[in-house]
């Protein structure tokens, strides 16, 4: 019995042209028994950062609260919002603090990063359960359907997708990947972020 696969669930994030997308399934289960089809694994951190937390459901809640606390402390001290890059480092150190008794979560971070010129550029990152960061330029995946997500994303993703096309690409990638994973599925949620707005859509999927 793997703790990483106890509750099931998967998250993916992709980069597009001046936009990012992050998506997850909505299943919560206890091994093969499905409990909920509306278990949110992706949370807003700021207006321009989302974090996905696939893994052990109890640690999803714990880490979400932990991140909320640390981001609030950062905002008060610095008197400004945290940037995605900085938040990724915060996630990494939070997890590595528990190096020898880890949270069973593999976070995925997506956001729009402010550049020195004042514009915004897409940012994605993912870590393993002890906080080893992966700053990919194309897409990152995590969760029980990670190998299916890697295969589907590698075949469907292309550079410089516009927001609407990125939505279609990440949705198709996620839906087809979770349909081949018994621990993921039961609906999906997709967030597409541009510099000035986020579009959130809940998708219907196979319910088996």
């Amino acid at each position: 019995m793997s703790i990483m696969e106890y509750n099931g669930g998967s998250v993916i994030a992709m980069v597009g042209k001046d936009c990012v997308a992050i998506a997850s399934d909505l299943r919560l289960g206890v091994q093969s028994l499905s409990i909920s089809s509306n278990f949110q694994k992706i949370f807003p951190v700021t207006d321009r950062i989302y974090v996905g937390l696939p893994g052990l459901a109890s640690d999803v809640t714990t880490l979400h609260e932990q991140f909320r606390y640390r981001v609030n402390m950062y905002t008060i001290k610095e008197e400004r919002e945290i940037e995605p890059q900085t938040f990724a480092q915060m996630v990494s150190s939070t997890l590595y603090e528990r190096r020898f008794g880890p949270y069973f979560i593999e976070p995925v971070i997506a956001g729009m990063q402010r550049t020195p010129s004042g514009s915004y550029e897409p940012f994605i990152a993912a870590t393993d359960l002890i906080g080893c960061l992966n700053f990919a330029k194309d897409f990152v995946v995590a969760g029980t359907a990670s190998s299916e997500l890697f295969g589907a994303a590698e075949g469907l993703w292309e550079p410089d997708l516009e927001a609407e096309d990125l939505f279609e690409t990440i949705s198709q990638t996620l839906l087809n990947a979770v349909d081949r994973d018994t621990f993921s599925g039961w609906g999906a949620v997709v967030h597409v972020m541009t510099k000035d707005k986020v579009i959130t859509r809940t998708l219907k999927g196979r319910m088996d």
């Binding site: 299916e148 890697f150 295969g151 590698e154 198709q172 839906l175």
Partner: peptide, 19 residues
Amino acid sequence: AAQSLVQPFLDNQIYFKNQ
């Protein structure tokens, strides 16, 4: 070895699943 990577892509492109 790569069945889990390839099969979801085939479901989508050959059977037009989720389309």
